[in-house]
């Protein structure tokens, strides 16, 4: 397992040498959405608290670092962390409201969606942050401003983010924190009876998840050089974040990565090809079909199924 990981990372590090520019873009999307999926995985997969409002953290992180860069000249390398902290604070607020007042299942889903929507509407109607137009970042190609002439740098940055989040999840899984999160997902009352402070651990999970997701917001803004309320706070982005770990296997280390390797190229290709023939939004139909397939045939996601298959092949 460890050797497989080392080889996989080595291959990914070497890959830009042979890839064309379009392929590199596809990989950037794979890594970036795997990173966001992995961040979501902590609260949504391991702790089983279904957030469908993670776009709120992306958007808040993106707006924070973009505003700091545009108005205060702060480098996004630091703005990224500030955005993460601001998102973590929002995560703490959502978590407090949801967990203190015992919102479970659909009610927690609605709470998270509502927060993302509130932020989208506020951003749309606040001229100070650009209103519906959003924010545009002037391209300078200056690495200190998180801007790179060479697409391959974004490749390595997004790969780094994915590995960072995966490392965090791997750490969590090996420690008490992870065992508690999984147990919370299974039965919260039983956890309480066994001495687990369920509130505290759910709060920790959502704060860590929101912090990482907020960091992702900076990457989003400074990779695309622009951000609009509908794209960074919108429900579609929240769905993009949730769907990869679910398809790949939520609550597993490799689930979000596998899910992103399956879905991101698919989304990117269908977006590129279908949009030319007036088929915009076709990738959403593909998502829908895939999700139905996963729910029907692989309810725990692709990774657990793949692992079973490998174990069987090995004997």
């Amino acid at each position: 397992m460890r050797w497989a990981a080392v080889i996989a990372i080595a291959v990914l590090l070497a890959l830009p040498a042979v890839l064309g520019s379009y392929a590199i873009t596809v990989f950037i999307f794979i890594f970036f959405y795997a990173f966001l999926g992995q961040a979501w995985n902590i609260i949504g997969g391991y702790a089983g608290q279904l957030s469908v409002g993670h776009a709120a953290f992306v958007g808040l992180g993106a707006y924070t670092s973009a505003m700091l860069s545009i108005h205060a000249g702060l480098t996004p390398w630091i703005g990224m962390l500030v955005g993460g902290v601001v998102s973590a604070a929002l995560g703490a607020l959502i978590g407090y409201l949801g967990f203190r007042f015992g919102l479970r299942g659909f009610y927690f889903v609605l709470l998270t969606v509502a927060f993302a929507e509130i932020f989208r509407i506020i951003a749309l109607n606040t001229d100070w942050v650009g209103g519906a137009q959003g924010l545009y970042i002037t391209f300078t190609g200056d690495p200190r401003q998180f801007q790179f002439q060479d697409n391959r740098v974004y490749y390595y940055v997004s790969l780094g983010l994915m590995l960072l989040a995966t490392g965090v999840v791997a750490w969590i899984e090996r420690h008490r924190f992870g065992a508690y999160l999984v147990a919370i997902r299974e039965d919260e009352n039983a956890c309480e009876a066994l001495g687990v402070d369920t509130f505290r651990y759910k709060m920790l999970a959502i704060v860590v998840s929101a912090f990482l997701t907020g960091i992702g917001g900076t990457f989003y803004a400074f990779y695309l050089f622009s951000l609009q309320p509908n794209s960074v706070f919108g429900i579609p982005l929240s769905v993009e974040i949730v769907i990869r770990p679910i398809v790949g296997g939520s609550g597993t280390i490799l689930g979000p990565i596998l899910g992103s390797f399956i879905l991101s190229p698919l989304a990117e290709l269908s977006r590129t090809y279908f949009s030319q023939g007036g088929w915009t939004g076709m990738h959403l139909i593909v998502y829908g079909a895939l999700l139905i397939g996963v729910v029907l045939f692989l309810p725990q996601g692709a990774y657990p199924a793949l692992r079973r298959l490998l174990l069987r092949v090995r004997g």
Binding site: E186, D187, A190
Partner: peptide
């Protein structure tokens, strides 16, 4: 809270058992 009471050394079982079924 129940978890704090458990930490003080008072543990309970449930009449309707509550295992973590997937673990």
């Amino acid at each position: 809270k129940p978890h704090a009471i458990c930490r003080q050394g008072l543990a309970r079982t449930f009449q309707i058992v509550r295992p973590f079924p997937h673990l």
